[in-house]
C-alpha cells in the first residue's frame, strides 16, 4: 500500500513537471532553449512510462525523444534562425479550438476503463493467450518481445518499413549530404556571408 502511495506521488510530481514545462516551452521564444527543454520533457515522459511499467516504451522515449530528436532539432536550428518571430496578433480562435479539443478528449477518457484495471477489454481479448502460452509457443522470457517480433510480426515489419520510408523521405527532401556535394557551388557562394562560422567549423574538424 505504501509503495502504491509512493508511486502516485512520484507520478504526480513528474506529471506536474511536464505540465509546467509544456506551458513554459509554449511561451518561450528562444528556439534553442525550447529544443533543450523538449529533451527534458521527453526524459520526464520516460520516467512516467517507467512508473507505468512500460519499460520498453520508456527506453525508446529516452533514446529518441531526449537523444536523437534534440540533435535533429539542433540540426534544424542550424538551418534557420534561433528565435521565433513574434506573432502579429494572438489567435484566440486557436486557443478556443485547442481548449475545446482538449476538454472533449478528457471527456472521452471518462468512459474508458480505469488505469490498470485487469477487467478492461484490452486485457480480455488476446492478452491472456500471449501471457499464458508464449512460454510454450515462443519460449523466450520477455513477452513484450515475443508479441512484437512474433505474434505481431507483420506490424513490426510494417513499422520497420515506415522507418525506412522516413529515411527515404529525408533523403529526398534534404538530400542526405549528397546534395551538399552537388550544390558545392552554392556553399562556396554563401561562405562569403558566413566566413567566420565556416572557418571555425573547418578548424574544429581539421
Amino acid at each position: 500500500m505504501g509503495e502504491q502511495v509512493m508511486g502516485s506521488v512520484i507520478e504526480g510530481v513528474l506529471f506536474l513537471f511536464m505540465i509546467v514545462l509544456a506551458i513554459y516551452i509554449a511561451r518561450l521564444r528562444s528556439l534553442f532553449a525550447a529544443a533543450m527543454l523538449f529533451g527534458i520533457f521527453s526524459l520526464l515522459a520516460a520516467g512516467m512510462q517507467t512508473m507505468m511499467d512500460a519499460v520498453d516504451v520508456a527506453f525508446t522515449e529516452a533514446a529518441v525523444g531526449a537523444g536523437i530528436s534534440t540533435v535533429l532539432f539542433l540540426g534544424a536550428l542550424g538551418l534557420t534562425t534561433s528565435e521565433e518571430t513574434r506573432p502579429v496578433h494572438y489567435r484566440f480562435t486557436g486557443l478556443f479550438v485547442v481548449t475545446a479539443t482538449g476538454l472533449l478528449l478528457a471527456w472521452g477518457t471518462l468512459d474508458m476503463p480505469a488505469y490498470g484495471d485487469p477487467n478492461a477489454p484490452i486485457h480480455q481479448h488476446v492478452a491472456p493467450h500471449y501471457l499464458d502460452d508464449s512460454t510454450a509457443e515462443i519460449g523466450i522470457p520477455n513477452v513484450v518481445t515475443s508479441v512484437l517480433a512474433s505474434y505481431r510480426g507483420y506490424d513490426t515489419f510494417g513499422e520497420t518499413t515506415v522507418v525506412l520510408t522516413a529515411a527515404v523521405g529525408a533523403f529526398l527532401l534534404l538530400g542526405g549530404g549528397a546534395l551538399s556535394a552537388r550544390s558545392g557551388r552554392d556553399e562556396d557562394h554563401e561562405e562569403a556571408d558566413s566566413s567566420g562560422d565556416s572557418a571555425a567549423g573547418g578548424e574544429g574538424s581539421a
Binding site: L164, A167, F171, G177, L179
Partner: peptide, 29 residues
C-alpha cells in the same frame, strides 16, 4: 526473432544516421 530484431536494429541505426546526415550535411541557405 533474433534475425528479425537484428534486421530492425540495422535499419533503425542506419536510418537515424541517415536522417542525421541529411540534417547536419546541409548548410544554411
Amino acid at each position: 526473432i533474433l534475425l528479425v530484431e537484428l534486421g530492425v536494429g540495422i535499419t533503425v541505426t542506419f536510418v537515424m544516421v541517415a536522417i542525421f546526415y541529411a540534417f547536419a550535411g546541409r548548410s544554411r541557405q
